[in-house]
Design a protein around this nucleic acid. Structure first.
Length: 258
DNA sequence: ATGGTTGGCATCCAA
């Protein structure tokens, strides 16, 4: 089973690139973030005509997550089911081929000290509560998406200039650590060590991709049975190289067991 | 100290 994640930064802008990538890479599941489209305007038919099944959870202008799968998508759950987090389309959970898939678009946080940063921390706390309620760390499960956190200094360019800022603040790192302690393994780091492996290159920095001024903030995590069976996890930079790209590219993992 | 880019939507917000 091949699973992948991609922050598309508007599915409507990236539709052709995503469909082409699906045809070339033939994953079993692709998790999308920042679809930026309400559900009634999502280009469902374009996927379904090509045989893909799609689960969507979107809103106008911002956020939005979706799952694309060649297999049936069962037991779809969107959001936390919590009145404290009502409108924000950042979480879609489902089962595909017996594997629990959790697709998240973790809040960016904007800047340390802002209400949005406080919301990022609260969201991460709420996600741990959600995991404890809904997911078994001993069963096959994958958590993937745009986490908006670089786990180590190796995961961001120009270190240590970003230390203590969003994506590298101790409060969010502590929450990521708590989530990993619940039972997740970073599948990319099972195979590849060291700096310079990124999934996001900021549009704002001129030639950020060409100069590899990036961040590794898109992750695929697996529970113990998934991590032990995972035979490959790689970043595919091709989408960020294409014309009119998203600012992120895809991460792909091969899970042997299912 | 600050700017630079992109997408969606509305003449700015979020990233």
């Amino acid at each position: 089973m091949i699973v992948a994640t991609l922050n598309v930064n508007s599915i409507r802008m990236r539709l052709d690139a995503v469909l082409e990538w699906l045809a070339e890479n033939e994953p079993d599941v692709l998790a999308l973030q920042e679809t930026k489209v309400p559900d009634d305007k999502f280009p469902l038919a374009e996927f379904e005509e090509l045989g893909w099944q799609v689960a969507i959870h979107g809103q106008k202008s911002y956020n939005g997550v979706a799952l694309v799968s060649r297999h049936p998508i069962a037991n779809v759950r969107t959001g936390f089911g919590d009145p404290l987090f009502p409108e924000d389309c950042r979480l879609l959970a489902a089962e595909v081929e017996g594997v629990t898939i959790l697709n998240t678009y973790v809040p960016n946080g904007t800047a340390v000290g802002t209400d949005k940063f406080a919301y990022k921390l609260a969201w991460l706390d709420r996600f741990l509560v959600y995991l404890r309620a809904h997911v078994d760390p001993g069963a096959p499960a994958v958590w993937l998406g745009d986490m908006n956190i670089a786990p180590t200094q190796d995961d961001v360019w120009g270190s240590p200039k970003h230390e203590g800022k969003i994506g590298r603040h101790k409060e969010e790192l502590a929450r990521l650590e708590a989530l990993l302690a619940w039972g997740w393994t970073d599948l990319f780091r099972k195979f590849t060590q060291g700096p310079g492996h990124y999934t996001f290159w900021d549009y704002v920095i001129p030639r950020s991709f060409e100069n590899n001024l990036g961040w590794r903030i898109d992750h695929i995590y697996g529970t113990a049975p998934v991590a032990s069976a995972c035979s490959r996890c790689e970043i595919d930079p091709s989408l960020r190289q294409a014309p009119k790209p998203s600012d992120h590219t895809a991460v792909v993992a091969r899970l042997i067991s299912s």
